[in-house]
Design a protein around this nucleic acid. Sequence first.
DNA 1: GGTGAAAGGTCATTAAG
DNA 2: CTTAATGACCTTTCACC
Lengths: 161, 161
Amino acid sequence: MTSGTGIDALDAKLIELLEAEPRIGVLECARRLGVARGTVQARLDKLIARGVVRDFGPRVDPAALGYPVTAFVTLELRQAVGHQPMAQRLARIPEVLEAHTVTGAGDMLCRIVARTNAELQDVIDRVLASEGVLRATTVIALAEQIPHRTLPLVKEAAGLN
Amino acid sequence: MTSGTGIDALDAKLIELLEAEPRIGVLECARRLGVARGTVQARLDKLIARGVVRDFGPRVDPAALGYPVTAFVTLELRQAVGHQPMAQRLARIPEVLEAHTVTGAGDMLCRIVARTNAELQDVIDRVLASEGVLRATTVIALAEQIPHRTLPLVKEAAGLN
DNA sequence: GGTGAAAGGTCATTAAG
DNA sequence: CTTAATGACCTTTCACC
């Protein structure tokens, strides 16, 4: 039985299956997992309801879109400026894919992409032009050693390791 | 139509539609976009073939899984140790969701999650135990100001801005 | 479990670059 | 001439009741 927040092995295997072959339907999942289709449907509904599975939206690859340069930019902000308004300004820049407030010397960490290194400079300039940005420290991602993944974590959470 | 590598407005609108409502099918997309079903199917196939759309896998939320703590850890490595073997060791730690080799003082930047701050320390200790890690600098993400997104970039690439 | 409705494929025709 | 879009038809498969 699944406690309030945990997931069990079946949930994990279901997610793993959907991760490997997203196009298959509920019925096919049921067949491969050896359980009734109703069970799969109920599990999926619960996973979605609990927010474990956000959605099944298309995962876009920025590199294939023509933006092969990825950088992580740490921003130092003027104390007076709030994080929320800053985030709103950053949100207007399409190349900013992600932004977090963080501990440490910097105040915000952003993931930024660009078509070329030259354009990366241009994007950073746009960020710096934002009210309240004191300083930006940039590191460029040379290679993606581990692409974004959650499957091992799912298995861990289900106690499968 | 635009050149070989670009995407056009219809592609962008298709991605936007699927992003907003991932559960609708090809036929429904065709209806809403006012084009034939075959067109939508052809566009989608091409987007997938070109790698712009990776897949439609389930997006798992680590926080809902019980891992609400996110951290970005910069690793300094011994020069002798290669990045590839290092990545393989990191890949064995489920809490490491992502890893990039980067420019700058650090050598690798990892995204790590944990159940609690205390467990984060534990995960970092596991990373540090890896052969070749000299030093780890950690910043904890306090809030996700801009959740991972690609839609604005898609529109930009299609020339819709 | 049964049924209505999609997905996915192929085709000929038409339009546009 | 090449590439793309369209609407039609078909079969298999799934989602929902």
